[in-house]
Design a protein around this nucleic acid. Sequence first.
DNA 1: CAGACGTGGCT
DNA 2: TAGCCAAGTCT
Length: 302
Amino acid sequence: MSTTLPPDLPLATRFAALVLDWYGENARDLPWRTPDATPWDVLVSEIMLQQTPVSRVLPAYQEWMTRWPTPAALAADEPGEAVRAWGRLGYPRRALRLHECAVAITSRHGGELPTDLEALLALPGVGAYTARAVASFAYRQRHAVVDTNVRRVLSRVVTGVADAAPGSATRDLALAEPLVPTDAGVAARYAVAVMELGALVCTARAPRCADCPVVADCAWFRAGKPAYDGPVRRPQGYAGTDRQVRGRLLAVLRDADGPVPQAALDVVWHDPVQRGRALDGLVTDGLVDPLPDGRYALPGAR
DNA sequence: CAGACGTGGCT
DNA sequence: TAGCCAAGTCT
């Protein structure tokens, strides 16, 4: 990567210009980024991409959008079908919330995604990141859009630290805001560009600094790429947890054509106490419906 | 604010 | 191999 930008430009100006230029040549061709992508397309992709890699989202996304191209289409179907189509993307509550989103959008917003941040934030499963992502990517508004990629990039470039400490959304936005270009359209392209840089170059594991367009402005690189020495992140353990049991229980229901007997669920985990707790949790979350006859099913229309 | 919440690929 | 990591949100 090379640049001929004057080195005396303010960091914010240089950073945005360099990242935008890089994005122009290195952006991936993803279906939710096409010019004809609707706000609904953007929202569905954002929800699916929460904690889930692009490679796994791609096939599920294509199938989902073919089946439910509009919020009204999804709202007209049963929530259990959304959970089933979610497949093995993980965190299936997202499927349920996406269905709730579709219902809310259809009933309260005439079937169109709202355009203002407050209304977006009010939708189920839409938080500080996703609301700004939709407002920016779909409506070309000017917002600081901060996800884990952006947090890492800014931590390195601006703060000079290898990784963002677990922090508040307020602090993240304060760090990101000064770098956002003034013009809304430019800001929207900048938002996706910084994320892309974090996803492809300024990665968590083995950053490709040699290919980075802003390496000359990176405080972390200039400091010799010191190792992260901040607060230790909590372990992410999975084996043996309720989450694993929930996953197995739900997989049985996803793969079944209809309601299943208790016995079909009992075989997936040896410990009846943990199994019962996990099943109760799924019912509480609305991911599983206990039927009057003792069987269990994915949530129906009710 | 810390912890819960899935899943699979990569090092 | 075991652990790390992936476009977060909710409580």
